[in-house]
Design a protein around this nucleic acid. Structure first.
Lengths: 334, 334
DNA sequence: CTGACAGGAGTAATCGATTACAATACAAGA
DNA sequence: TCTTGTATTGTAATCGATTACTCCTGTCAG
């Protein structure tokens, strides 16, 4: 009934149909060396009438170029990483495929995926690591698939391979400073998991700002794990005593959890309590109350990452680059 | 300095190191036929000490299995599609890679990407088409890469290949009905682009509900394009006359645009005007006002899609299935 | 004791493209 | 006319794995 499973058209078929050798077909297709106009036309005609598509596996096997880059992030459904991926896509050529996988913040799953991805099917790997696989990553990079680290930068890999990360320290510093400038007397900080380099650096940034600009601020801390629920728990924790005048959540998910919990407790954000978030909150504009936040620009980061990848593909021996991108501070107001 | 570019370890190296033939190595690796325990051990030892990874291209070339599925959607940064992808990932084996691309709702770009993807690098293609490529899609499916259509189902392809779509008609019907039941006298409807099957079916569902349950309802329509901006324009359009008592946006982005515009004009959602949306709005809970919406469950749809893919991979000649999934109605209240 | 058969391992063909090298034709210069 | 060079095209090796076949060895029924 259907023609499924029919043998595919190969370069041989095209060659036979056009009455030339496979070498000539290949040359026409890749423009790798000159071919007489007449033959070019015959080949092109054969290609279209037969509906020929080159076999990517065969080409990859011979040329050692996969025309694909791998992207491994902790969570593909996180809009932050999606925007980064979108940014990478923006700058990559159309015939470059993106091989994606998500580790779900699980080092073991990440390790397995790294193994699959290192089977020579990608030309470059963009990686936001869940941690704990430094050795494997280093091996992949050394073995021949260049790695570009994004978002998270394990200490042992810094300056060993290319990286594109946010300036977590200074962005958090400025966020904290902008809240201190409002003259608050007390502050609740909701941290991420200290195993993540991002969380640690944001924490350091906050603390530095406090030490420098408000050493006598009453600070209370809660150690969450970057999830919405831990934001909620943080607020419950803070409300066991007098509520702080301001609250900072060091990622957007925790901010959402914290703010929704505060609202449930009857707080009016921006009036009863000042809120700050590392990362914007989607559709917060609808809500219309005030929020100070670090304006991450994942799409821009993605584009930058894409350029780093291209540079690395062009020259495997180019100097290692480490981009640390400063973010802007934003504020939504009623 | 670095060892980048070093020749990779191949199956030959493993064979030599273990003192066996490549055939034996392959048999050990794939368990395709029995091998004596002693040799198994020698081979496994060689594999680990040499750090051997099979070459995916070579394997794919020979076996015609890519161990990868392609996913082509109009917009990867749309959380709806991301959740679908996440769902697919949930059910696929770990060694299956996802090759992703996004067409940006552009038929031409989609066509190019379809060509790249059909170069034998995937075993199956999951596609939410931007439209206009029915013939190409049919060819790919017939040529040997089975296609599973999701979200959008072009008429000419229905029942030709597997599909997983929402029951747009009935979900929209019920959304409209639930608003009619509130006793409204006038309604503004914001449509998507009629070229998209989803938009058309949602429109039909709304209209059917009105015809059946409130034939005398004063209905006004605006034809948008599923973007946030067109939602804003729709509201501007409606407000040129008396505001309707209720408003339905037939996708979530237009709903966000419409609602934010209404708020800017001083409307209190749920009090001055009733709002309905096909698809939930992220973080709307924070906002806390009432909204009726069709609760899409993209992750569930993704899992279902994954199962359809697996079934198709197992048996290329299995009967074509068309899943039409009914969505739930949701409501957020103050 | 012999032929049949099965388990286990090796040899070499194969997948479909690219490309080094060889071969050919033709034109220009000696 | 002969040499040399240039422009095209073809031939066949190659990439790294899988697998059809072949071969050897030992077991067992007859």
């Amino acid at each position: 009934m259907t023609a499924r499973g029919r043998r595919n058209i190969t370069i041989k078929d095209v060659a036979r149909y056009a009455g030339v050798s496979t070498a000539t077909v290949s040359r026409v297709l890749n423009g790798s060396s000159p071919v007489k106009d007449e033959l070019v036309e015959r080949v092109q005609h054969a290609v279209t009438t037969l509906g020929y598509h080159p076999n990517a596996a065969a080409r990859t096997l011979k040329t050692r170029k996969a025309n694909a880059i791998g992207i491994l992030v902790p969570d593909i459904s996180n809009p932050y990483f999606m925007q980064i991926i979108k940014g990478i896509e923006d700058v990559m050529a159309l015939d470059f495929s993106l091989l994606m996988a998500s580790s779900d913040e699980d080092s073991n799953k990440e390790k397995k995926l790294l193994n699959v991805l290192s089977e020579d099917r990608i030309d470059c790997l963009v990686l936001a690591t869940a941690g704990g696989n430094d050795e494997v990553i280093r091996t992949i990079d050394e073995k021949g698939i260049p790695v570009v680290l994004i978002d998270r930068l394990p200490e042992s890999l810094a300056n060993v391979m290319d990286s594109v990360v946010e300036d977590n320290f200074w962005s958090a510093y400025e966020l904290a400073q902008s809240m201190i400038n409002l003259g608050i007397k007390s502050l609740g900080i909701i941290h991420g998991p200290m195993s993540a380099s991002t969380a640690y650096q944001r924490a350091s940034g906050c603390m530095a700002a406090i030490r420098q600009h408000a050493p006598r601020l009453a600070v209370r801390e809660y150690f969450g794990d970057f999830t919405l629920e831990s934001g909620e728990r943080a607020v419950e924790h803070f409300l066991q005593e007098d509520a702080p005048e301001a609250i900072i959540a060091l990622n957007n998910l925790m901010a959402v959890g914290a703010i929704s919990k505060l609202i449930k407790h009857g707080f009016v954000i921006g009036k009863d309590i000042v809120a700050g978030s590392y990362g914007a909150i989607e559709n917060y504009l609808l809500f219309g109350s005030s929020l100070r936040y670090v304006e991450q620009e994942p799409r821009t980061l993605g584009k930058l990452t894409g350029r780093v990848v291209q540079r690395r593909l062009e020259d495997r021996h180019a100097e290692v680059v480490s981009h640390v991108v400063k973010q802007q501070l934003g504020i939504t107001v009623k």
